[in-house]
C-alpha cells in the first residue's frame, strides 16, 4: 500500500530525513519510535505534504501512485490521514461543520454526491460512540479551548469520520489519561480492516499494549536504524535507546 524508498528531506537547509525506506502493506500496523528530534513528526509531515519540507531524494508510492506528486488535499482525498501531534484551533468553525466540509470535499474528489444531511448525522452518531466523544464538544469551535486529551480524541473522531486508507497517528497517546488512551486505542482497533493501514508514532509501549503493531521501527537521526516485531517495543521500554545507538555507532566505525 505504502512504499517509501530512500526518502530524504530537509527543512530550512537542514537535512532531517536521511534515507528512509519502509514498506507497509494493507491490514498492517507499524509503530515508529525513537528519541525526541529523530524525525518522526517530520516523516509524518512529509507524507502529508506540509509546506516547508523539501524532498531531496527518494520516492513514496501510495497504492501505486506517486504520493509526492499530490497536493496536501489530494493526499487526504486519496486516503491519507494525519492525526496531528499539535492540532490547531479554528475559531468559529465547529468540528461538525469542519467534518461536513471535509467529507464533501473528499466525496467530490471521488466523484460522489454531497452526503445527505441525514446520513451525515447518522455517521456522526456512530463515530461519536466509537471514540466516546461528547456532542457538545463537536459543536464548539474546533480545538478552541479543548483540553489536550479532548484535542487528541477529536483527531481520532475525525479519522473515524474520514475512514482513511492510511492513518498516521503522531503521538496521539501523549496527554491522554488511562481511560482516554484505552478509548482511543479501541477506536483505532475498530477502524482497522484488512484494507487499511496505520502508522503509529509513539514514545510509549503502553499504547502498543492496546494497538498491537505488526512491526516496530526505531528512527534515529533521520534513519530507521532498527526494525522488529512488537517485542522490540518491549525491549525499548526496558532498556531505552542507548543500546541501539551504540549498535549504530559501532556499525558506522
Amino acid at each position: 500500500m505504502l512504499s517509501i524508498k530512500n526518502l530524504q528531506a530537509r527543512v530550512e537547509e537542514k537535512e532531517i530525513l536521511k534515507g528512509i525506506s519502509l514498506e507497509i502493506g494493507a491490514g498492517e500496523v507499524h509503530a515508529i519510535m525513537g528519541p525526541n528530534g529523530s524525525g518522526k513528526s517530520t516523516l509524518a509531515s512529509v507524507l502529508a505534504g506540509r509546506g516547508g519540507y523539501e524532498v531531496t531524494s527518494g520516492s513514496v508510492s501510495f497504492n501505486g501512485k506517486d504520493l509526492l506528486d499530490f497536493s496536501p488535499e489530494e493526499r487526504a482525498q486519496e486516503g491519507v490521514f494525519l492525526a496531528f501531534q499539535y492540532p490547531v484551533e479554528i475559531p468559529g468553525v465547529s468540528t461538525t461543520n469542519f467534518m461536513r466540509t471535509a467529507i464533501n470535499e473528499v466525496r467530490n474528489y471521488r466523484g460522489q454526491d454531497e452526503i445527505e444531511p441525514g446520513d451525515f448525522l447518522k455517521m456522526m452518531k456512530e463515530k461519536m460512540q466509537l471514540v466516546e466523544i461528547d456532542q457538545k464538544l463537536l459543536s464548539r469551535s474546533l480545538n478552541e479551548g479543548f483540553s489536550g486529551g479532548e484535542k487528541k480524541r477529536n483527531e481520532i473522531f475525525q479519522m473515524a469520520m474520514l475512514e482513511p486508507k492510511l492513518g498516521i497517528l503522531d503521538e496521539t497517546d501523549s496527554g491522554l489519561d488511562i481511560d482516554a488512551l484505552r478509548i482511543v486505542a479501541n477506536g483505532v482497533n475498530k477502524l482497522k480492516t484488512k484494507d487499511n493501514a496505520f502508522i503509529v508514532i509513539t514514545h510509549y509501549q503502553r499504547l502498543l499494549d492496546y494497538i498491537v503493531p505488526d512491526f516496530v521501527h526505531v528512527l534515529y537521526k533521520g534513519k530507521i536504524v532498527k526494525s522488529g516485531t512488537k517485542d522490540l517495543a518491549l525491549e525499548l521500554e526496558e532498556k531505552g535507546y542507548d543500546w541501539i545507538i551504540k549498535e549504530v555507532q559501532a556499525a558506522a566505525v
Partner: peptide, 9 residues
Amino acid sequence: FYCNQRGIN
C-alpha cells in the same frame, strides 16, 4: 495545512 490535510483545498 490542517484543513488541507482533511481534504479541503
